[in-house]
């Protein structure tokens, strides 16, 4: 039975590693400028975690195989180096590795959160509500009109509670159901939650950030490949959570200009 256990554990370890080595289940191709750092961090962590995982399972299996059903007369022996050796190994090998990962990984985090967006970044407001995203472009004046929560009415498509009759800044605001951004241009996404907590997750963009009701947060990114990608909500927001999504279109600059003009006419 001990041998069966040993073989099973080792087979499970190998079996678990195969899909990873096959690279079938990996994040979709990255389209952001900061993404490579995250991807690199992910693969480095995978190597270290993978080695720890395989080593621990193999040794567990090996020891169970070797030290079960030992004759009663056999003497108990201690692992060479004893507890001191193991503690040292744990601190040096695993602890330091983990800390090193953390320190180097901070670079990827910093590239998303500690670098402020450039002043000329394209400002777009994203609003999340049960259960859809809407986006607002400031229009030619470059300014967003104020939000009046009491005016929010999805029945009249006033998703942001705008009052263009009284707020001149709102007049040229463009509200869309799809997020289109020009390629290779930094985007500063201002995030506003209308009702409960939501999240903005674009796998390809390597961006995930919660919308916090009562607190406007922002993220910034630069997409460097064109295409159409899914934006999904990853913060449980209610019964329609599973269907809360929108699309991100990364367009070439001329396509983006055309798209924006067309959206402006539809207001």
């Amino acid at each position: 039975m001990a041998k069966v256990f040993a073989v099973t554990v080792i087979l499970i370890a190998i079996g678990s590693a195969i899909p990873i080595l096959m690279h079938k289940w990996v994040p979709p191709v990255d389209i952001s400028t900061h993404g490579p750092l995250i991807d690199e961090q992910l693969s480095e962590t995978m190597v270290e975690a993978g080695i720890s995982f395989l080593a621990a399972q193999f040794i567990l299996g090996l020891f169970v195989w070797k030290y079960s059903n030992t004759p009663k007369s056999a003497k108990i022996r201690n692992f060479p180096g004893g507890a001191t050796g193991l503690v040292t190994a744990a601190v040096l090998l695993v602890g330091l590795e983990a800390m090193a990962l953390g320190i180097f990984g901070a670079k990827a985090w910093a590239s998303v959160y500690f670098t402020p967006p450039k002043p000329d970044a394209l400002k777009i407001q994203a609003q999340a509500g049960q259960f859809a995203f809407y986006f607002r472009y400031p229009g030619p004046d470059g300014r967003f009109g104020p939000i009046h929560p009491d005016l929010i009415n999805e029945g009249t498509q006033n998703f942001f509670g705008l009052d263009p009759d009284h707020d001149p800044d709102s007049k040229d605001d463009i509200v869309t159901a799809e997020l289109a951004v020009p390629v290779n241009r930094e985007v500063h996404l201002l995030m506003h939650a209308k009702d409960v907590g939501h999240s903005f997750f674009v796998r390809e963009l390597r961006i995930q950030q919660d919308f916090v009701p009562g607190l406007d947060v922002s993220v910034h990114f630069t997409a460097n490949k064109t295409g159409r990608f899914e934006i999904v909500c990853t913060q449980l927001c209610g019964l329609g959570h599973y269907n809360m999504k929108a699309y991100l279109s990364v367009l070439s600059q001329p396509d983006y200009d055309t798209w924006l003009k067309q959206q402006a006419t539809m207001q």
Binding site: I76, A83, V91, G95
Partner: peptide
């Protein structure tokens, strides 16, 4: 991970040279 690893290593290390009953 440090205390967790220590715990796991002590467990596995103690298996070494033991008279394990399955």
């Amino acid at each position: 991970t440090i205390p967790s690893t220590i715990i796991v290593l002590i467990w596995i290390g103690s298996l070494y040279g033991s008279k394990l009953r399955i």
